[in-house]
């Protein structure tokens, strides 16, 4: 019997975008408010996982053709290099620098070296969560 996943497909198309945009909000809300790379990454992973579940794994693989183990490495590298740049200024490893800027439309924003560090964490978490779940899911034989 072939089931029709019309409900699931329709809802996934809408909901996954809501989750994705909320995860991006969480990612940028980090540092001084609840949120950050880890939570944002987990949220993104759930959105992508929803896609994998409701559509076929193979189809989504074509749409998202990344190798997750490489993404883990890239994320770790970004995080380490962010920590390393403080060595250039003669400060201890992982020293954080931040500065406030005023931008025309957005008003005052904060730029900090914690952001690229968080981006690294974000990539690692997304990739680890998806990699470990997909490894089990694909091994159907």
């Amino acid at each position: 019997m072939r089931t029709n996943f019309l409900m699931l497909h329709t809802i996934t198309r809408i909901v996954s975008f809501i989750i994705l945009s909320f995860s991006i909000y969480l990612f940028f809300a980090g540092h001084n408010n609840p949120g950050g790379g880890f939570i944002g990454g987990l949220m993104t992973a759930t959105a992508l996982l929803l896609l994998y579940i409701s559509f076929d794994i193979k189809k989504i693989k074509k749409a998202i053709p990344f190798d997750y183990s490489t993404i883990i490495a890239i994320g770790l590298l970004i995080a380490i290099v962010t920590g390393l740049n403080s060595l250039l200024f003669g400060d201890p490893f992982l020293t954080q620098y931040f500065e406030y800027y005023t931008v025309p439309v957005l008003g005052e924003i904060e730029l900090t070296t914690a952001l690229p560090f968080d981006l690294g964490i974000y990539l690692v978490v997304v990739a680890v969560a998806l990699l470990s779940i997909l490894t089990i899911a694909e091994d159907d034989s």
Partner: peptide, 24 residues
């Protein structure tokens, strides 16, 4: 606790895959 949860997340992911392989 957040750090410990993250570590627990990694260990659990590994344990699940390992137990699945052992079962297989």
């Amino acid at each position: 606790i957040l750090t410990a949860i993250v570590i627990g997340f990694g260990v659990t992911a590994f344990l699940l895959v390992l137990s699945y392989r052992t079962y297989k």
